[in-house]
């Protein structure tokens, strides 16, 4: 394919997904907003004053970046996992793309771009929702945007790989429930890891979501548990590794071709 044709194919895949995401907005955008409002009410209004400050920041302001990331992580992941799984499992319309000359990296990019779009939009919505509760403070907009996009990218790639491997609908629910959610909760969304005993601080550094939340929080508040360059590096490395795996699996037709 010429670069122009590859672009058309990419655009076709993304457009289709974005139209779907927007059309079913009560399923794609609303849940994250509703959940966040509940969190903001509880941590801000109900509990906030009793918990006090973390690293010199009001608890709610400390928690907002983590809650935004939580929404980004689950939405980007489940979007791509669902689209890939349903198109190979229910209608088998993945074949429409597989019989075409679209190269594997364009297929990966197309599926992932839909997830990134959803992740970024949901992240923005949750952030906007937080403003009435926590006010607006951004330490470094470039860092915020970088982490928003890279996190959506990494989790979309993860969702794509999950969708490729899943053999039943449970297969795309197990990872978010039993892997992603624990990693998010234990990744410092609700606390700074400096309050943990040394051993558990070390363990937390094995959790990739910790770096995502920590770097994102740095973008908002200018405080972090680990240097921003380290978390950026971890995130970039994660994206690179997951891209390679996703590309290889699409190219080999794993679970998609007999």
């Amino acid at each position: 394919m010429t670069p122009f044709e590859a672009w058309i194919s990419f655009y076709t895949i993304v457009r289709k997904d974005v139209v779907r995401i927007v059309r079913i907005w009560p399923q794609t955008f609303l849940p994250a907003v509703v959940t966040s409002v509940l969190y903001f009410l509880i941590f801000g209004t109900v509990l906030g004053s009793r918990i006090g400050e973390f690293q010199g920041v009001a608890f709610l302001s400390f928690v907002v970046p983590g809650l935004v990331m939580m929404a980004v992580v689950t939405n980007a992941f489940s979007n791509v996992a669902f689209v890939m799984f349903s198109s190979k499992f229910f209608a088998r319309n993945i074949d429409e793309i597989l019989v075409s000359p679209t190269p594997p990296f364009v297929i990966v990019a197309g599926f992932v771009a839909g997830g990134v779009t959803r992740g970024v939009l949901v992240g923005l919505l949750v952030f906007l929702t937080s403003i009435p509760f926590a006010g607006l403070s951004i330490h470094s907009l470039p860092v915020v945007l970088l982490f928003l996009v890279l996190t959506s990218l990494a989790l979309s790639l993860g969702g794509l790989i999950n969708g490729i491997h899943a053999q039943s609908i449970d297969g795309i629910n197990i990872i978010p429930t039993f892997v992603l959610t624990p990693l998010v909760y234990l990744g410092g969304v609700f606390y700074s890891i400096e309050i943990l005993p040394g051993f558990w601080q070390g363990v937390t550094h094995a959790n990739p979501i910790f770096f995502v939340v920590d770097g994102f929080r740095y973008g908002f508040l200018g405080i972090s548990d680990t240097p921003i360059l380290v978390s950026t590096g971890v995130l970039l490395a994660g994206c690179a590794l997951l891209s390679l795996i996703a590309w290889y699996e699409i190219r080999s037709g794993l679970r998609l071709k007999q």
Binding site: F4, S9, T12, I13, K16, S100, P101
Partner: peptide
């Protein structure tokens, strides 16, 4: 995909061929 419109199914297929 049974939820897609007829015209979209045909036009999207063209898209996959660039």
């Amino acid at each position: 995909n049974i939820f897609e419109r007829v015209i979209d199914i045909v036009v999207n297929q063209a898209g996959y061929y660039g």
